[in-house]
């Protein structure tokens, strides 16, 4: 998959997150493994409660107090968990830009937006006031705000939700990060605005040659915009592979169920969408086997008892954790077209 022999931007190895609770430690995330190469985009998909946001927060080091992260998280070769919290915050602030879910609450209503955009630059890169200002204004116009010079002095309440999210994106770009994380960045926006913001993110990623992580509960959001996809269920990775491959030939039953729950253009109108019966797993009371087994139509006895290991498909980078995966489809002739960079 990595045609260039470059060091990955971000990699997680055997990452596990635990939170203490009344009934003992809760495993919020279990054994997460992935690597993200430069200039590539990763989609992280799952239902609410699957652990997507916690994964992002654990990587960023802003998880709620009491969350213990184990394993290895490397940012450009640096082991984040080995760093002092202060150094780690500085490194991440410098190298990673993040856009959160709710633009209405992500901007401080008491601080001028210009200041909110440039502050990380002033602190991490030692920009002077004038440099910071010109760079912030440049970014404001880059993300598509009209009259960026005036906007600089405005307060957040003077902007709409979509505009605020553009401002958040500008703020994430101030340090020229190598990685941009969008954590459900468009979920709170109107559908039309969603597409604009997503397209903006994609353009930025391409133009600035960054890596990107797109976190969403919506497969449609990551479909055309990512190179790889990571499907989370109940705090476990259930499927991980090139986006086109996973969409064409999902092997895990949960991924397949998610895909069939999506409306498709080729379906006749008024086709009933499939839903996934049952509830997401209760982390306090994990089943011993596959977390999806209680809701899986094809579950057998072994699924309830033994955690399925990660196995590889025909495509070498396509992995899934299922005892009884879906059948492998023959690869189409023009296979290479599916993952042009």
């Amino acid at each position: 998959m990595y045609s260039e022999a470059t060091r990955p931007i971000l990699s997680c190895a055997a990452m596990t997150c635990e939170m203490d609770s009344v009934s003992g430690p809760l495993q919020i995330l279990q054994d997460i493994n992935f690597t993200l190469a430069p200039r590539r985009a990763l989609g992280i998909v799952g239902e609410s409660g699957a652990g997507k946001s916690m994964l992002v927060k654990a990587i960023m080091g802003i998880a709620p107090k009491g969350l213990k992260t184990m394993g290895r998280i490397e940012l450009e070769g640096q082991d984040l968990l080995a760093l002092k919290p202060r150094d780690r915050a500085r490194l991440i602030g410098r190298k990673v830009g993040i856009v959160f879910q709710n633009p209405m609450t992500s901007l401080n209503p008491f601080v001028q937006i210009g200041r909110q955009i440039e502050e990380a630059g002033c602190i991490h890169m030692g920009l002077s006031k004038a440099e910071a200002r010109s760079r912030a204004i440049e970014l404001l116009s880059f993300v598509g705000l009209p009259d960026p010079e005036d906007c600089y002095d405005y307060y957040p309440h003077q902007f709409s939700g979509g505009m605020k999210q553009r401002i958040m994106i500008a703020a994430a770009l101030i340090c020229q990060p190598d990685l941009l994380i969008a954590d459900e960045a468009t979920t709170a926006l109107d559908v039309t605005v969603q597409k604009e913001v997503l397209d903006l993110l994609q353009t930025i990623q391409a133009e600035r040659q960054m890596s990107m992580i797109l976190v969403s509960h919506n497969l449609g959001v990551v479909a055309g915009r990512t190179d790889e996809i990571l499907v989370l269920y109940g705090g476990n990775v259930v499927e991980y592979g090139p986006t086109a491959e996973v969409f064409r030939n999902p092997r895990h039953r949960y991924t397949e169920a998610l895909l069939s729950a999506m409306p498709a253009m080729d379906q006749p109108a008024h086709t009933r969408l499939r839903t996934i019966p049952g509830q997401p797993p209760n982390l306090a009371n994990r089943p011993a086997g596959c977390p999806f087994a209680p809701r899986c139509p094809s579950a057998q006895a072994i699924c309830h008892e033994v955690m399925p290991p990660m196995s590889a498909g025909i495509h070498p980078d396509h992995r899934f954790a299922c005892h009884f995966p879906l059948a492998e489809l023959p690869r189409p002739a023009q296979q290479e077209v599916a993952h042009v960079q």
């Binding site: 915050a89 709710n102 992500s106």
Partner: peptide, 16 residues
Amino acid sequence: EDYIAVARAKGLPLGY
């Protein structure tokens, strides 16, 4: 508040 989480994600020092 969310905007404090954002500020922390930006790696800003606690005092700031």
